[in-house]
């Protein structure tokens, strides 16, 4: 428990906000090499540790840098300074079903999506039944996914992603997938995850979810870390701040 699964060390991430962007040759030639931009620091010297086996929530208002941090954790974005070190395999659930090919069948897409998420063919084959059962679309598994309802589509995508079996799972606001029954199944899966000693890092705006699931949390505001620690106290401070702001 004392070991850190993920160490976020002094991470800063800068975005360029272009007022006028040179994205065509014409504008580049007319204006020369310089394009007008302003630096925006989405993350400012954020440091914390995520203990191994914990479920770690990230809270904060819209635009506070939660998703940026999550994308850095998922290796989609790279911080301008600082470092993120994680122990074991990291998988991210930022969007489900991305990479599905509409003309291919559900079965083919499970294999394709699995390998995009870093599973080997053997892994997918081994877990295939589990994935399909979890998604509840067995009847349609050999149909092209373009004929799926949007619910079936995301459920299948989610089932693949949740079965990647990583050491650290990074989740963004996708607990709102599917109907109530499916959501309950997802929550169960997260509990299973925790029991297996895996680490989950998640972003959600639902305080209820955080309270139910997380044991640790971090609160971000304007790209800076406000508070990190035990979930209950962080949530208390955060909700108090929100109430204050509302008044």
């Amino acid at each position: 428990m004392t070991q850190a699964a993920v160490v976020v060390d002094d991470v800063s991430k800068k975005f360029r906000l272009y007022k006028e962007k040179n994205d065509s040759l014409k504008t580049a030639l007319m204006r020369g090499r310089r394009s007008v931009h302003e630096d925006f620091w989405a993350l400012n010297d954020v440091s914390f540790e995520v203990p191994e086996g914990s479920t770690f929530g990230l809270v904060g208002r819209n635009g506070s840098g939660k998703s940026t941090l999550l994308k850095c954790l998922a290796k989609i974005l790279y911080p301008n300074s600082g470092s993120i070190t994680s122990r074991g395999k990291v998988a991210s659930l930022l969007e489900v079903g991305s990479g599905f090919h509409p003309e291919l069948s559900g079965r083919e897409n499970v294999y394709l999506n699995g390998s995009i998420l870093g599973m080997s063919r053997k892994d997918v084959a081994k877990k295939f039944d589990e994935i399909v059962d979890f998604s509840g679309v067995r009847k349609f598994i050999d149909q092209p996914v373009k004929n799926y309802s949007s619910g079936m589509y995301v459920r299948l995508g989610f089932s693949v992603a949740i079965n990647v079996d990583p050491d650290v799972l990074v989740v963004d606001e996708i607990l709102a997938v599917g109907d109530a029954a499916f959501q309950a199944k997802c929550k169960e899966k997260f509990v299973e995850f925790r029991k297996a000693g895996k680490t989950v890092i998640l972003v959600t705006h639902s305080m209820g979810n955080i309270r139910d699931m997380c044991d640790h949390a971090a609160w971000l505001d304007n790209g800076s870390l406000v508070q990190v620690g035990d979930a209950q106290s962080v949530i208390k401070a955060y909700t108090a701040d929100i109430d204050k702001g509302d008044r």
């Binding site: 998922a74 290796k75 989609i76 991210s92 930022l94 969007e95 991305s98 990479g99 995009i116 998420l117 870093g118």
Partner: peptide
């Protein structure tokens, strides 16, 4: 063409 994928998944 795979912008959506690149923004959401690491590979």
């Amino acid at each position: 063409g795979s912008a959506g994928l690149i923004k959401k998944v690491y590979f």
